[in-house]
Amino acid sequence: MTIDAQIPVKLYYEDVQIGDTIPKLIKSPISHLQLVRYAGASGDFNPLHTDPKIGELVGIGGIIGHGMLIMGFVGQMLSDYVGPTALRKFDVRFKGMTRLDDIITCTGTITEKYEVDGEARIAGRVHAADQNDEVKVAGRFVAALSRRT
């Protein structure tokens, strides 16, 4: 199977400067179908994410999105930016619940460049927020990049 989407251009250590912003990723509105599909893909079948009645029952008012789906969105932004095998560390805090129809935008900033274990690394902060700028996920990452030389 092939898909016509573009493979992102490879990022080199020399291309990145402290303070750079990562190209932001704006996702499609979260749908019930996406949460059902994500439940199947991830194996997280907690009905809080798929069954509206459960959400009412436990007092959170309807379905909430999987936090890990939002971390996945941020992962997509990072994979597009540094490439899929460059990540060395990726951690997030979940700051707020996501609801159906929320439109999540992922952003990030480079905070460090350094060498360790013979690897050239960058570190940065990442966020995911909804259409009202309410932060859902705040996190950090470390990635190892190739040098041009």
Partner: peptide, 24 residues
């Protein structure tokens, strides 16, 4: 399956052929 559920259509996650074409 995970990439598609997240809505990421990067071809390297879709098949071994695509991944190898990209150098993985």
């Amino acid at each position: 399956e995970l990439a598609l559920a997240i809505g990421d259509d990067n071809p390297i996650y879709q098949s071994k052929e695509n991944a190898q074409a990209a150098g993985y």
